[in-house]
Nucleic acid binder design. Structure first.
Lengths: 170, 170
DNA sequence: GAAGATTGATGAATCAATCTTT
DNA sequence: AAAGATTGATTCATCAATCTTC
């Protein structure tokens, strides 16, 4: 299913060629971006594999955990979109997926009849517990990185997220 | 189009809750994975925006550059899949996209009649030059990260890619 | 039989347009 | 008019099955 491994690091090789064509300045950015893209693929594949027994994808898992960790076990769809940083349509699709599996259910918003709430079900809570256990067991697919490595990456990328307007720096 | 910014870092907030539920061990992995996923989204959006004038998406740009940098300006589709780490079907789609835009063309393989070559066109070479200039100008969307930051991220993620079997360490 | 590539179908994500409620 | 959510259409990526050639 997956292609055979190469005998060299394709990103390192690309960096070498890049430098000879366009100089030093843009080589590090190119290599970093390519690394992040590829790492995202690897992590997503590992996570989705670990979540398969629970009939979840990672995006659906994220939505489920947002409900799980919310105070009342329920949130307005719009709020979920803001927290997950996805478009309204995607929230609709995510909740559809969770609802079909019996992990969440839509409810009417008590005061605003335009809005819809998504609420986690008891079954959803069980699944969330088990799925989280599974992901924690594999450290979210981050092997072989150390905690120090991970904290450094998180910190570095945080400054990029701030710059991108992901959230307002306190 | 994009949701309004939050007043706090959603990943930091998730990490806080995570720690109180599942302890320290899995908090750093969770936060790092979420950071990488979100950063990938941000970068992809920045790159696609910069590439829009050239009618390219980032995946198509990557495929085009692979041809651009190849010795003869042409490669077998299978080899492209191995280098880009994507499935054969995706290579077909990518080359379809480049071919429709006149940036590449399919050619018969000289010796193996099963195989197909993709060759960059003169027009494709012009576009590749211009698009690369555009991406270099914005440092591949990596603002505000320093070269030191970028090299550190690339190096750290490289060990993960090796572990994942992306390539064989020499 | 296996490799290389394509086709058709499925699942996920975004965009534009629509509908209801505020 | 604006906010919240949904629908339908488009794009993209992957999977299974197919076809040709080695």
């Amino acid at each position: 299913v997956s292609p055979p491994p190469l005998r060299f690091d394709p990103i390192k090789e690309a960096a070498r060629q890049w430098r000879s064509h366009w100089g030093d300045a843009s080589t590090a950015p190119m290599a970093a971006v390519t690394s992040i893209m590829r790492t995202e693929q690897i992590l997503m594949a590992r996570l989705n594999e670990a979540l398969e027994p629970f009939d979840l994808t990672f995006p659906r898992y994220e939505a489920l955990m947002l409900l799980y960790l919310s105070r009342a076990g329920e949130l307005p769809l719009g709020k979920m979109g803001a927290r997950l940083q996805v478009h309204p349509t995607s929230v609709t699709n995510l909740i559809d997926g969770l609802e079909q599996r019996g992990y969440a259910a839509r409810k009417a918003h008590p005061t605003d009849r335009r809005a819809t709430l998504a609420a986690i079900t008891p079954r959803g809570r069980e699944i969330a517990d088990q799925a989280t256990e599974a992901l924690n067991a594999i450290r979210f697919g981050t092997a072989p990185l150390s905690r120090k490595d991970l904290d450094a990456v998180t910190g570095t990328l945080r400054t990029l997220r701030v710059e991108a307007g992901d959230f307002e720096e306190k």
